[in-house]
Computed example of a mutant assay.
Amino acid sequence: MPTATPSAANPATAHWLSASQLPAPPSAQQCDWLFDQGSLTRRLTELADEQFSVLPLLEGWQALRSDECLALKVPEGSQGWVREVYLRGHGQPWVFARSVAARSALEGSGLDLAHLGNRSLGELLFSDQAFVRGPLQACHYPAAWLPSAVRSEQLWARRSGFSRGALALLVVEVFLPSLWQHVAGRATLNP
C-alpha cells in the first residue's frame, strides 16, 4: 500500500456546515445518512447484507490540510497521520473515508493507527466508550481531494471529530454515487 507523502498546497477548500447552516440542504434520504449519529460501518454492513469490506488506499505521515488543522486545533502545516480507505459493499466503493490525527496528539496516545489494515476505524471508535464524538458537519467535498477513480463534483461528505483525552481524530466520509444507487435500489425492492 502506498504511504502518504507531503504534497504541494492544494487550493481546494471545503466549507463544513451543520445541518441547520446548509443553504441548499440535500434530500431527506441524504440527510438521513449525513447526520446519522450511529456507526456508519454498522449501517453499511447491514445495507451490504454483511458483504462489507475496507480497502486501504493510503496511510502515513504528512502535512495536514488547513481545514484539518483548524478542526484539530493545531498550528497550520502540522504533521499528522493520514489514512484513506474505501468502505465497500459487495466489493464496490460506497464511501471514501479520510481519517487524520495530529502527530503531537497521536504519539504517546496508545492508539496504533498504522496497523488497522483492512479493519474499520469506525468500528474501533464506536467500541471504545472513552471516545466522545463531536458534532457532524457536511459539505460538497472538493473533487480535487478525491482519488481519481471516484473523482466527481458535488459529492456530499460529512465529518466529525472523536476525542479521548488529549487525542483528537477527524473522520471524513464522502458518499459515492454507487452508495446512493444501492440505497435507491433497496428502497424500490422494499417500499
Rank of each mutant, 00 (worst) to 15 (best):
P2A: 11
A8F: 07
A9W: 07
P11V: 01
S20N: 07
A24M: 10
P26Q: 05
S27E: 10
C31Y: 00
C31T: 09
D32W: 12
L34S: 06
Q37V: 00
G38T: 00
G38L: 07
T41P: 01
R42A: 15
A48K: 11
F52P: 01
F52Y: 15
S53T: 14
L57G: 05
L57F: 04
E68F: 08
E68L: 08
V74I: 13
V74T: 14
V74H: 06
E76A: 12
S78D: 03
S78N: 05
R83D: 06
R83H: 10
R83V: 04
V85Y: 03
Y86P: 01
L87R: 07
H90Y: 10
G91I: 02
Q92W: 02
Q92I: 09
W94T: 09
A97I: 02
A97F: 04
A97D: 10
A101Y: 04
R103E: 14
E107G: 01
S109C: 02
L113T: 05
H115D: 02
G117D: 08
G122H: 13
E123Y: 07
D128C: 09
F131I: 08
F131W: 10
P135H: 06
C139G: 03
P142A: 11
P142R: 11
L146S: 08
L146R: 12
P147L: 09
A149F: 06
V150F: 09
R151P: 00
R151L: 02
A157R: 12
A157Q: 10
S160T: 08
G161N: 09
S163T: 14
A166P: 14
V174C: 11
V174R: 11
F175W: 05
L176H: 04
W180L: 11
Q181R: 13
H182G: 01
V183E: 13
A187Y: 07
L189M: 14
L189A: 15
N190C: 11
